[in-house]
Amino acid sequence: MIREIAIAGGSGDGADKYTIAVPGGWSPSEWSRSELARLAPMLDVDIADLNAISTDSHALFVDGESLIGADDIGEALIRPAVHGRTGMAGGSQKALEAHGIARLKQASRSIVAATGKAGDGIVSRYINRPISQAISLRLLRIPGISPMHATCGTAALGLGMATCLFFGGDAGLIAGAFLFQAASIFDGVDGEIARATFRTSRRGAMLDSLIDAATNLAFIAGLTFNLWHQGFTRAAAFGAIGLVLLATGLLLIGRRARALNDSFTFDAVKHHFRGRQSIIMKWLTWITMRDFFAAAGAVLILIDLAPHALVAFAVVAIGWFFVTIATLFRTRTPKRMHADKSPLVR
Rank of each mutant, 00 (worst) to 15 (best):
S66V: 12
G153E: 10
D71E: 11
L43N: 05
Q106T: 15
F264V: 09
G64S: 13
S110G: 14
P41N: 04
E75A: 12
V323S: 10
L159V: 13
I2C: 07
D212M: 00
Q181A: 10
D16T: 14
L310Y: 00
D170S: 14
R103C: 13
F264K: 03
F273Q: 09
L50V: 07
W228S: 10
G9Y: 02
R103Q: 15
A59N: 11
A21G: 09
Q93H: 06
A81D: 09
R38T: 09
G275L: 07
V189K: 04
F180C: 06
L305W: 09
I127K: 00
A107I: 10
E30C: 00
Y18I: 15
M281S: 15
A175G: 15
G297V: 00
D46Y: 01
V82K: 15
Q277C: 04
T55V: 15
A8M: 10
E97S: 04
R125V: 03
I241K: 06
V316Q: 04
W31V: 11
V189S: 06
G231R: 08
W26M: 06
M42A: 12
I7A: 00
A205F: 10
L159G: 09
P143F: 06
A221Q: 01
E35L: 04
A95S: 10
G275D: 14
E30L: 02
L157H: 01
L227M: 13
L67Q: 13
T288N: 15
A150K: 03
S54A: 13
G160T: 13
I318D: 01
R199F: 03
P28S: 07
A205T: 12
V62N: 07
D16G: 04
I193N: 07
R103A: 15
A6Y: 06
A177S: 07
R138Y: 00
G204Y: 10
A6V: 03
Q93F: 05
S34E: 14
T324G: 13
V189N: 05
R109W: 11
N226E: 14
K270E: 15
G242C: 07
F264S: 04
Q230N: 08
T324Y: 05
P28A: 05
L173R: 07
A40G: 01
W286M: 12
R255L: 12
A326H: 09
V323P: 01
G319A: 07
I301C: 09
H272L: 14
R346M: 05
G172L: 01
M206R: 01
L50Q: 09
R330N: 08
T248A: 13
D291C: 09
S27N: 12
T86P: 02
A237N: 12
H58R: 10
G158Q: 03
V123M: 13
A113V: 04
D71L: 08
G158E: 02
I47L: 11
E97P: 00
I111S: 04
D187R: 04
F186S: 06
Q133H: 09
G188D: 02
A326S: 10
A76F: 11
I7N: 02
W31T: 12
D190E: 08
G116F: 00
T248S: 14
G231T: 11
A296S: 08
L243F: 14
M42Y: 05
R195D: 05
A314L: 06
P41C: 02
G172V: 03
H308F: 11
S184E: 09
A171G: 12
F292L: 05
P147Q: 10
I73D: 05
D72R: 13
V323E: 08
R125M: 02
G84S: 13
R255G: 04
G9V: 01
V345T: 06
G144C: 02
I20A: 10
A259F: 00
I78Q: 05
